[in-house]
């Protein structure tokens, strides 16, 4: 499948950018004419990944979150990358209800949400180097 369109966005790791990021990605994805439900799935997954970069990657400090989107015929691939702390144990981070920051009242459901709402979720992370989450959502509503 060839790339039909792509975009690249850099935002500061501020929590007020979470809403901005998910709206931008959803707006870009809407070119493929997905259903409202599919768009909401994408928005929620992006919100989780960006929140993850802000809370766990940069631990509330300043940093840059890079968002990349690729549109193909009937799918969107989204990459969300930080250059922060990295995830020590990816397997553990993916477990439902696991949180490394229970004191922040985190539900530990971030990766579960991403995996539920997207068709594919890949995590690459290295300690002190950062984390990249790549997700794919297929839009079944696209009849190409």
């Amino acid at each position: 499948m060839s790339t039909n369109n792509r975009m690249h966005l850099e935002i500061m790791s501020k929590s007020q950018n979470e809403a901005f990021a998910r709206v931008v990605v959803a707006s870009f994805a809407s070119q493929l004419d997905p259903t409202i439900e599919e768009l909401a799935d994408v928005k929620t997954a992006v919100s989780e990944a960006v929140t993850n970069a802000i809370i766990h990657g940069y631990e509330g400090g300043d940093g840059i979150v890079i968002i990349e989107c690729i549109l193909r015929d009937d799918e969107i691939e989204i990459g969300i990358k930080d250059q922060g702390a990295g995830i020590e144990d990816i397997q553990k981070a993916r477990e439902p209800l696991y949180t490394s920051k229970p004191e922040l009242e985190r539900s530990g459901m971030g990766f579960t949400v991403m995996e539920t709402f997207m068709d594919e979720v890949k995590i690459q992370s290295q300690k002190n180097m950062g984390t990249e989450i790549r997700m794919i959502k297929k839009f079944r509503s696209c009849d190409h």
Partner: peptide
């Protein structure tokens, strides 16, 4: 209009 896992945390808390 929108809720993610942070909202789940608020409800559980």
């Amino acid at each position: 209009n929108f809720m993610d896992s942070s909202g789940i945390g608020v409800v559980i808390g």
